[in-house]
Simulated assay, not measured.
Amino acid sequence: MPTVTPIYLGCAGWSLPREQWPAFPEAGSHLQRYAARFPAVEINSSFYRPHRPETYARWAASVPSTFRFSVKVPKQITHERRLQGCDEALQGFLDQCTRLGDTLGCLLIQLPPSLRYEAPVAEAFFGALRARYAGDAVLEPRHDSWLEAEPLLRAQRIGRVAADPTPLSGGDRPAGWPGIRYYRLHGSPRIYYSSYPRDDLERLAQTLRAEQDQGASAWCIFDNTASGAAVPNALELDALLRPAAG
């Protein structure tokens, strides 16, 4: 039988609101309890500060072999150096996060809203990335000029994030390299706070199943964590997706 491509569903971070604890095992660290219910997580803390390689290795050792981490590229690279002159910083980051081994599922590259697409800069950065890292990666640009980068993203096997909300025209749909489809749900109408209603989650479940049927690596990360909405939204979507695996 053909292998079914998994859907990597999870949250931005593995913090568990107390009211959701009954849905998770009682024993273990927060990460272990989280990983018992969800197949993936997005590490956002790497954007703000480095983690020791040993920390990544410890995280990898505490989750099932099928679990996957998405790791956000540091702001030093994306926001401070703006993708330029960052080979050393990029190598340092990769030396750290690749200690996740096979549980490293994706790199997330989120750009500042002010960063315009400049082909020479983008080509040099993604060339440097691909010289060091062959795995899945996605880009979340926030300036419309990056719509012009589609040929480059496809050539370098970089997916473009489907974000909600998004400042990009058509940015609520995935683009770039079609081998990965990555949905980041920040909360709408109030970003980082709002919970998604069941109708939205039902439509999202249908979309993710369609991506799965097409053989893409499908990710869905809830980033509406400020008021604790991410975990219940992810649990509800997980329940909606379960019949497809039956």
Score class of each variant (00 low, 15 high):
Tyr192Asp: 10
Ala230Lys: 05
Glu202Tyr: 02
Asp95Lys: 14
Gly85Met: 08
Leu240Asp: 09
Arg116Trp: 09
Phe222His: 07
Leu104Asn: 00
Pro113Gln: 09
Trp59Leu: 09
Cys86Phe: 02
Tyr182Ile: 02
Tyr192Leu: 07
Leu204Trp: 12
Ala210Tyr: 00
Ala226His: 11
Val231Glu: 03
Ala35Ser: 13
Leu147Asp: 14
Pro243Ile: 08
Pro6Asn: 04
Met1Pro: 07
Leu241Asp: 08
Leu208Ile: 08
Leu94Ser: 07
Val73Pro: 13
Tyr56Phe: 15
Asp223Arg: 10
Glu140Ala: 06
Ala27Arg: 10
Gln91His: 13
Arg130Lys: 10
Leu83Met: 11
Gly228Asp: 07
Glu26Ile: 10
Gly171Tyr: 06
Asn44Met: 10
Pro197Gly: 05
Tyr56Ile: 13
Gly179Asp: 07
Pro141Trp: 00
Glu150Gly: 11
Gln156Lys: 15
Ile109Leu: 15
Glu236Asp: 08
Ala137Phe: 09
Arg132Met: 03
Asn233Leu: 05
Tyr117Arg: 05
Arg52Asn: 07
Phe24Gln: 00
Glu54Cys: 00
Gly13Asn: 09
Phe38Gln: 05
Asp199Thr: 12
Pro174Cys: 02
Pro113Thr: 02
Ala40Lys: 01
Pro39Tyr: 01
Arg81Cys: 06
Ser62Ile: 03
Asn44Asp: 14
Leu152Met: 11
Tyr183Ile: 08
Met1Asn: 08
Ala218Val: 09
Ala122Arg: 12
Pro112Gly: 14
Val121Leu: 09
Arg130Leu: 10
Cys220Arg: 03
Asp136Tyr: 13
Trp146Thr: 10
Ala119Val: 12
Thr225Leu: 14
Tyr48Pro: 02
Ala131Cys: 01
Asp200Phe: 03
Arg198Tyr: 04
Tyr117Lys: 01
